[in-house]
Simulated assay, not measured.
Amino acid sequence: MVRFDDLALFVRTAACGSFTKAAREANLLPGQVSAAIMRLERDLDSRLFARSTRSLRLTDEGERYLPYAKEVIDLLRNGRDELRRGDETLAGTLQIAAPSDFGRNLLLPWLTAFRRQHPNLELRVQFSDQVTDVFRDPVDIALRYGSVDDASFVALPVAPDNRRVLVASPAYLEQCGVPQSLDDLPRHSCLLWHMGGRLYDKWGFPVEQGALPPGRGRRTVRVSGPLASDDADVVRRWAIAGEGIAYKSWLDVSADVGAGRLAVVLPEQPGEAAPLQLICPHRRQFSPAVRQLHALLAQRCAELGAPP
């Protein structure tokens, strides 16, 4: 008979791609994880992983079995949550992935307060600007900027009206001048973001009808600068330090603007839409903890106000 713990370790190992990493996350020894996988393979009479001294990958049988294993784990979790539905005490483990800047500077204190209200709830957080795969990575929910058109996801709006804004420190603007239009941006030092070898040096802006040829509702400005990072929080810190102009989510910089560390550049120019969504692979995973956390995040983001 297949053991639930072995099934859970199979899913975790598939996400981590390593017995060692899976063991570390589960607070076990690598040999214990390996033994669990071998036991599961024996129960199923199928080889789930192809092993070598340097790599570990799913076999064709493992790829086909993985979604069913996840389904079983989800059903058992849902059953547990259903038993607790009438109890206001939240318990269990909630694994969350979020963008670096939003995660460290806004989400972290909110999660800390949320956990204090529910001391039986365990949180596992990942802050990174890499796009989390909620089907393969060991997370329950992910917070993500931008519209989600993939029908395989379930997305709940957290900050649907959020937009990007141009910001710079008062010291930079005093030294280098205040841009008067989008045409001035290429002459300024702009703080760039890069990911996977791609440099995001083309900034998009919605424009009013009539400002561009028919059928065009967006203007792209190519910018440049000596500083770039794959961590959005680093870009924000550079802007505060006076190193240039950044194009950031309003949620990420609203506190800095309010405190005077940053000023909005071209406030009359609307920025690109950047709605914040809570992503979940299945609606069945909307546990009481997820529902309460979603309500809290939507409320806190609304309190930050709309971008200028």
Rank of each mutant, 00 (worst) to 15 (best):
R237I: 08
V257Y: 00
S229C: 08
E174A: 10
R115Q: 14
A35T: 05
A69V: 05
A241K: 03
P160V: 05
S229T: 04
I141G: 05
G271H: 03
L90D: 05
D233I: 08
L94T: 07
L191F: 05
L94S: 07
M38F: 12
V154Q: 11
P267K: 02
A295Y: 04
N78L: 15
A228I: 02
A97T: 03
D184M: 06
L123E: 11
Q209W: 01
I96E: 06
T220S: 11
W110M: 10
P157Y: 00
R284C: 06
G244M: 09
P214T: 12
F19L: 09
R236I: 15
D149E: 04
L262N: 04
R218L: 14
A289V: 06
A241L: 03
P270M: 09
L304G: 02
D149H: 03
R164E: 03
V234R: 02
D43A: 15
S224A: 13
D74F: 08
H294T: 11
L278M: 08
P99N: 10
D230G: 14
M1Q: 07
D161L: 12
E208W: 01
P214N: 15
L166Q: 01
V33C: 10
P119T: 11
P157E: 10
P170F: 09
A171K: 10
L296V: 09
P30T: 12
L304T: 00
W110R: 01
G31S: 13
A113G: 13
